[in-house]
C-alpha cells in the first residue's frame, strides 16, 4: 500500500481534514466498483472538458456561414456534415455543450438550494409552516414541467436566461418534497434533541445538522433530473423559446434540421445523439451516486 492509501484508510485520523478525505475515499472506492456509474462520470466529465475547451477542440467557428458548403454530408473535412447555412455541425455541437452545461448548472444552483431549504424548514417546524409550504410545493408539482416552463417563457419572453429561470421554477418542488421527507425521518431523533438541548438556534440546527443529512438524497435526485432538464431545455429550444439563433443550442439545431430530415438526416440527428448521450451520462451517474450515497444503504457500513 502506498503512503497515500495508508493515510486515507487510517484507523484513527489525526485531523478533521483527513477524516473527510477518508470518507470521500471510501465513497469513491464503492463508486468505482460500478462500471455504469464510471461511464456516466466519464460522459459528464467529457461534457465539462468539451465545454471549457470548445474553442480549441472545434475545427471551425460555430457561426461561420459558408453557403457554398451547405448541407454537406459527413466527410473528412466536416466530420458530422454541415447545416443549411454551411456551418460545421461538429463545431456547433462542441460549442453547444457550453450552453447545455450552463443550463444544467444554473438550474441546479438555483433550484436545489430553494427546494432544500423549503423542504427542510417545512419538515423541521411541522404544523402550519409545513402545511403552507407543502401546499405551495404541491401546486407547482401538479403542473407538467414543460407546460409550466412554456408558460413562464411565454410570460417572461424567449431567451436562454428566461428558459433557465423557467426550468428552475419547475424543478425545485421535487427537491422540497425529498428534503422534507428526509427531514421527517430524523426530526424527532435524539441527536437533533441533543443539539437543541445545547441551546442551538433553529437556524443553526437546520443549517448545520439537518441540511447536511438531506444533501445526499438531493444530490442524487438533481443528477437524475439533469437528463430531464436537458430535454426540457432542448424542448424549449426546439419550440424556439430557448436559446435564440445563432446560438448553437442542441434543441434549436434539431428544430432547424427538421425541414431536411428525409434528405439530409445528419442535420437533425447529430445534435440528437449529443442530447441522448449526455442525458444517459447523467442518468448513469445519478444511479451510481444513489448506490453510494443513499443513507439507507450506507448505514450498515
Amino acid at each position: 500500500m502506498t503512503p497515500l492509501k495508508l493515510w486515507l484508510t487510517a484507523d484513527a485520523p489525526t485531523s478533521r481534514w483527513q477524516a473527510q478525505a477518508a470518507q470521500a475515499y471510501a465513497i469513491w472506492r464503492s463508486f468505482a466498483r460500478n462500471p455504469l456509474a464510471v461511464l456516466g462520470a466519464l460522459i459528464v466529465g467529457t461534457l465539462i472538458v468539451v465545454a471549457i475547451f470548445a474553442p480549441v477542440l472545434a475545427p471551425y467557428t460555430p457561426v461561420g456561414q459558408n453557403l457554398s458548403m451547405r448541407l454537406m454530408p459527413p466527410s473528412a473535412e466536416h466530420w458530422l456534415g454541415t447545416d443549411e447555412l454551411g456551418r460545421d455541425i461538429l463545431s456547433r455541437i462542441l460549442y453547444g455543450a457550453r450552453i447545455t452545461l450552463l443550463i444544467v448548472v444554473m438550474v441546479a444552483v438555483i433550484s436545489a438550494p430553494i427546494g432544500l431549504i423549503i423542504g427542510a424548514v417545512a419538515g423541521y417546524f411541522g404544523g402550519w409552516t409545513d402545511r403552507v409550504l407543502m401546499a405551495i410545493t404541491d401546486v407547482f408539482l401538479s403542473l407538467p414541467k414543460l407546460i409550466m416552463a412554456l408558460a413562464f417563457v411565454a410570460a417572461l419572453g424567449a431567451g436562454l436566461q428566461n428558459a433557465i429561470i423557467a426550468i428552475a421554477i419547475t424543478a425545485w418542488p421535487a427537491y422540497a418534497r425529498i428534503a422534507r421527507a428526509e427531514t421527517l425521518t430524523f426530526r424527532n431523533s435524539e441527536f437533533i434533541a441533543a443539539v437543541q438541548l445545547q441551546g442551538a438556534s433553529h437556524l443553526r440546527v437546520i443549517g448545520v445538522h439537518v441540511l447536511p443529512l438531506c444533501m445526499s438524497s438531493t444530490i442524487i435526485r438533481v443528477t437524475l433530473d439533469m437528463a430531464g432538464i436537458i430535454l426540457t431545455a432542448a424542448g424549449l429550444g426546439f419550440l424556439g423559446l430557448g436559446a435564440q439563433p445563432p446560438l448553437p443550442e442542441w434543441g434549436a439545431m434539431i428544430s432547424r434540421g427538421r425541414s431536411f430530415i428525409l434528405d439530409q438526416w445528419w442535420v437533425a440527428t447529430m445534435p440528437g445523439f449529443a442530447i441522448i448521450i449526455v442525458s444517459l451520462g447523467f442518468c448513469f451517474l445519478g444511479d451510481g451516486l444513489r448506490d453510494v450515497l443513499d443513507p439507507r444503504q450506507r448505514d450498515g457500513r
Binding site: F191, A194, L213
Partner: peptide, 12 residues
C-alpha cells in the same frame, strides 16, 4: 446509536 449525528466526527 440514535443520539449521535451520523455524519459528524466525535470532534465536531
Amino acid at each position: 446509536y440514535a443520539s449521535l449525528h451520523p455524519r459528524r466526527t466525535v470532534d465536531a
